[in-house]
Computed example of a mutant assay.
Amino acid sequence: MKFKLTIGLFFICGLSIAQTKTILINNVEIFNGKAEKTTIGNVLIEGNLIKTVSVNPIPTDRSANTTIIDGKGKFLMPGMIDAHVHLTMESIPMQLAMVSDIGYINIVATDAAEKQLMRGFTSGRDMGGAVFSLKKAIDQGLVKGPRIYPSGATISQTGGHGDFGMPTDVPRQIGAPLSYFEKTGMTIIADGSDQVLMRTREQLRMGATQIKLMAGGGVASSYDPLDVAQFTEAEIKTAVEAAGNWGTYVAVHAYTPKAITSAVLAGVKCIEHAQLMDEATAQLLAKKGVWLS
């Protein structure tokens, strides 16, 4: 999916800026994200757009709609992007999350989102979790946080990295009710191409900007060793086609060459983690133009 990203908020170490119609920040050490050196200068922001960056004084309307800030030589830079975050999971222990109401989890996530923003991250690519409500609240200005690009629920096979059921939950009855974690949108189990297709379309329906599949084992799940491969190539391809019809892509959790290769051959556009990748697999990613996060 192609996004037009405009950095609408700078982050100053030790200084919080509330959004107003016009903001003039004077006397700051500016790193623009490209130049090798910083410069002492001034920045004019109108609405949520950076209009002028200059080493010279910037003339501006001194009306009530203008906020003028003396940066006092502090460091100023474009907001950073966290390319892999789980706002509803990162600040709560897994054992607590498993027994907590989704309302409490969202409160914890709201606090985590504000802390992300105050660390200088103005955008976050959320790679799994019930984050749609938090994104909406941030977009409406109800709470503070970065702009979020949500994946929605992680999609996992039975026994995969997103399977947080109890050991006594098998055999799972066909058509049985969803678990609480599934119903609240934290994760969802899908076995077979038909289920993967439905669950992918559900996340897109909710507003996912990309789809997250669990294609390999993990360290925060109970049933899958780190070195296992998950989902068949056909299952992954089903999600890729559904996402492609929506103008977006699939990213997968994967560590090993086997898991990564299956995902790449199925058309996945981004591999998350991949710490066990070998040279040949890295060359495959380069050849296919697949991103590594």
Rank of each mutant, 00 (worst) to 15 (best):
F3T: 09
K4S: 10
L5V: 15
T6H: 14
L9R: 14
F10S: 02
C13R: 08
L15C: 08
S16M: 09
S16C: 09
I25C: 06
N26Y: 01
N27A: 01
E36I: 11
I40T: 12
V43I: 15
G47V: 11
L49C: 13
S54L: 10
N56T: 07
P57W: 04
T60K: 02
D61E: 14
A64V: 09
I69G: 02
I81V: 15
I81F: 03
L87D: 04
L87M: 12
M89S: 10
M89E: 11
S91T: 10
L96Y: 13
A97E: 13
D101K: 11
D101T: 11
Y104W: 10
N106Q: 14
A109T: 04
A109S: 13
D111H: 06
L117D: 00
T122D: 05
S123H: 14
M127I: 13
G128D: 02
V131I: 15
K136L: 12
D139Q: 13
V143C: 08
V143Y: 09
P150N: 04
S151G: 13
G152D: 02
A153W: 00
T154F: 05
Q157K: 09
Q157P: 05
T158L: 08
G160M: 09
H161F: 11
P167M: 05
I174K: 12
L178I: 07
E182P: 03
G185T: 06
T187N: 11
S193L: 03
D194T: 12
V196D: 01
R199E: 13
R199W: 04
R199Q: 15
Q203C: 04
L204W: 01
L204K: 08
G207I: 04
T209L: 07
K212I: 06
L213R: 01
S222G: 13
V228P: 00
F231A: 06
F231M: 15
T232I: 08
T232G: 15
E233R: 15
E235G: 10
E235T: 10
I236V: 15
E241W: 02
G247F: 07
Y249H: 12
Y249Q: 07
V250E: 03
A251H: 01
A254F: 02
I260G: 01
S262Q: 08
V264Y: 00
L265E: 15
L265K: 14
V268T: 11
K269D: 02
E272R: 07
H273M: 08
A274D: 00
A274I: 00
L276Q: 07
L284I: 06
L285C: 09
G289H: 07
